[in-house]
């Protein structure tokens, strides 16, 4: 009875399925198929004929490779640095912008700070390479002003990871504050009025009203960020990389690109990708369920 009903409904709604078809075809062909094809990690790639199953061979090779260990370490270090030093900045930024009265200055601050988000990493790399130029770059102009010797940031193993942190901050601090600002705007003004009558200062209001109201947004965005933990910002690293600093900023994705796309070791590179994807999935599902248990809120 129920089944017949279903078939009837499907028949009646045929037009809906036709309308849905192009989108579903797209997801099937360009998302699902390449995900299923990641079984290549357990196979040897053959140009002619069927691929051969080889079990965990490529993973064993991967985990015994010192190069992979370095790459993994770099990924973890760079991502951790970004989470620690960049994640709080948009929150802080939104708190500060929130204190500005609606008017030209606020508009100016927002318009300027969102702009870098729309530039490609190629453009940003160009701008930062100029800014960090060892001879006449802006960063060294400032250093020289304080009587410090010039530095070649882009080729310095000590500094390049900080270049990644600061350039990412430059690009996204403003834009990433939008969701927080939106959450702040939803806070009832009566809370602030009551606080003001009780004599709370601007800082107190930030600390005891605004910040607590932001917590659920913070948790959501933190979980989403963790989902990208193993990515560490491929486009950024890819464009700011050079031979002198390769060893300290080579991350999983740049490694996959080099051994896979450039050297043609497709199976081995796919194994590295699959490892990355699996960890990312564990991180995002793990934090999602943890947060659901602790705060009753997850990402979806």
């Amino acid at each position: 009875m129920k089944k017949v009903n279903r078939i009837k409904r499907i028949r009646k709604d045929w037009l809906l399925y036709v309308m849905l078809l192009p989108g579903m075809l797209y997801f099937a062909i360009f998302h699902i198929v390449p995900i299923i094809n990641m079984k290549l990690a357990f196979q040897d790639y053959r140009i002619i004929g069927e691929n051969v199953w080889v079990g965990w061979k490529h993973f064993e090779q991967l985990f015994s490779s010192p190069a992979f260990k370095d790459v993994l370490m770099n990924t973890v270090i760079i991502s951790s640095m970004k989470i620690i030093f960049i994640f709080p900045i948009p929150i802080l930024f939104s708190l500060l912008v929130n204190e500005l009265r609606f008017g030209p200055f606020r508009k100016y601050v927002q318009s300027v700070s969102y702009l870098p988000h729309f530039l490609s990493w190629v453009v940003i790399a160009g701008i930062w390479i100029t800014l960090l130029d060892p001879v006449d770059g802006g960063a060294n102009v400032i250093r020289n002003f304080f009587q410090l010797p010039s530095l070649d940031y882009m080729t310095s193993k000590e500094h390049i990871r900080w270049v990644l942190v600061y350039s990412e901050m430059w690009r996204s601090a403003g834009w990433d504050s939008i969701l927080y600002l939106a959450a702040i705007l939803k806070i009832s003004p009566s809370l602030y009025e009551a606080a003001r009558i009780d004599g709370a200062s601007t800082l107190h209001q930030m600390r005891y009203i605004t910040l607590p109201s932001l917590m659920s947004t913070v948790v959501t965005l933190f979980i989403l960020n963790l989902g990208f933990f193993m990515s560490a910002g491929f486009d950024q690293v890819f464009n700011l990389m050079n031979d002198s600093v390769l060893s300290v900023i080579d991350i999983l994705d740049t490694y996959v690109y080099r051994i896979g796309i450039l050297n043609g070791q497709y199976s081995y590179a796919t194994a590295a990708s699959l490892f990355k994807g699996a960890i990312g999935l564990i991180l995002i599902l793990g934090t999602h369920f943890l947060s659901k248990r602790l705060t009753g809120k997850g990402v979806w």
């Binding site: 290549l40 989902g227 896979g260 994807g277």
Partner: peptide, 27 residues
Amino acid sequence: FVGKRLVLVVLIAVMVFEPSMITEYLL
């Protein structure tokens, strides 16, 4: 429509798991 839930689940899966650039390239 029948099957809507399945489609939404697939979309969320697509959001949290990206294909490898290698298999995308080979595709």
